[in-house]
Design a protein around this nucleic acid. Structure first.
Lengths: 233, 233
DNA sequence: CTGGCATAAATAAGTCTGACTTTTTGTCTC
DNA sequence: GAGACAAAAAGTCAGACTTATTTATGCCAG
């Protein structure tokens, strides 16, 4: 996915990254560059590059005379798409999925409201296309086709919001939606009510009705929260 | 701020990072590792480490026979605290500040709602302390003292939400609030209404009233949006 | 004998250099 | 236009050296 193993240091990261984010090395664990270089059978230069990347993600900290120490989870750059992917691929997947879904529930409604104000004609058309694609694939176990349009829909909303921070969450939402279809339970056709909501959001954005777009999107995200049993009585 | 220039590659990043995020190298610009190494008077190993870090931030892409090409802004890891800091320090500051404030307006109300449900007794106490500190520093040009408690308050809310993604936005909020006081216009005492709102949020969280905590926080963030003239008629 | 302080030693990251490999691209020829 | 060739730049490796930091040592004073 995305950009795997480009170079030796990438291969090292593909192994070390998931291991660290999975908690295999408890916070405070000390690794030595030389030892790691031997273990992965790469030169120290390559290993140093990998460590630098992990350091920039705040997963580890490199100090002289000490070594490479693993930082506590609270300091990780959890918004780094690479870190998110590593965590989604590991044992921390459920917790990560919940965190991201809550984040979605906060961001997407606001993004939809902004989209209603800022979306261009092309973006409205794109949105409608996606919604129609979802409808067309909503019956008969066409889960893959549905997923493609669902992801495109939410990406389009985030992009049309005109806010770069929101737009960059497109990949995250894609991972979450994709994971729901592939890894988790999603054998039946999608909820018809959810499909309708997406169509209505597209309409509201086209109509420039920010309040309605926001409210409808909030209903969508509430549904996503309910799927993960994240509720408030 | 935080961890500056730890090592030669750090110094290179402190120069190259701001330059790239400021748009001094347009998307598609090609840099060569050797040339950069000469320019910064460091060895190729050090320069390679710096490039790897920039690559992990999706600011650049390194390809054989081509060089290090600058990626379009839309692909940058804009949630990387380092990238945020670089952009806040450069010419892109106003736009970055707006993006972040909109993000705050989406996240913080939801975080406050969650905090009302999940906050521990200690976290409630911390929150109240912060609010009282804000009140105590709200008059007589005690802007620094006010800022400290304001930052601590919002950090506490995000932390008490129990969501790690929200919690990690604490640094971002701190940068925004700090910037508002230091760089931008903030000569007068803070708005008394805003101070009151913070106290009321602390009360609502303590009382476990999620809806009220969310609504009150929404009013706070609306105020922040208005300060930047981000409005919806 | 003990406490503290200055000094020395050990250690692991940090840095530099130079040679070599690999991939990609542009060009030249047929 | 297809294939072969050459150039360019990143990628890799190995080894020697530097530097900062921690730990251990040992000395003197109390």
């Amino acid at each position: 996915m995305s950009t795997p193993g480009r170079g030796l240091h990438g291969h090292v990261l593909d192994t070390l990254g998931p291991a660290i984010t999975a908690g295999e090395y408890p916070p405070g664990s000390v690794l030595r560059t030389d030892e790691l270089a031997q273990r992965f059978d790469v030169s120290r230069s390559v290993m140093r590059e990998a460590v630098r990347v992990l350091e920039s993600m705040h997963l580890v900290e490199s100090r002289r005379r000490v070594g490479v120490t693993v930082r506590p989870k609270a300091e990780w750059n959890v918004y780094d798409p690479q870190v998110i992917r590593w965590r989604l691929a590991g044992a921390d997947r459920p917790r990560q999925l919940r965190s991201l879904t809550v984040l979605r529930s906060a961001v997407e409604p606001v993004a939809a409201g902004l989209a209603a104000k800022h979306a261009s004609a092309e973006q409205c058309a794109e949105l409608t296309q996606c919604a129609l694609g979802m409808v067309a694939n909503s019956r008969g176990h066409r889960l893959e086709g549905y997923l493609v349009h669902d992801v495109a829909f939410h990406r389009a909303i985030l992009a049309a919001s005109g806010n770069e921070m929101f737009a960059r969450l497109g990949d995250v939402v894609a991972e979450v939606l994709s994971g729901r279809t592939h890894h988790d339970v999603m054998f039946e056709d999608p909820d018809p009510a959810a499909v309708t909501l997406h169509v209505q959001v597209a309409e509201a954005v086209r109509a420039g009705d920010a309040t309605r777009a926001e409210q409808l999107t909030r209903e969508i995200t509430v549904g996503a929260l309910q799927e993960l049993d994240i509720l408030a009585p």
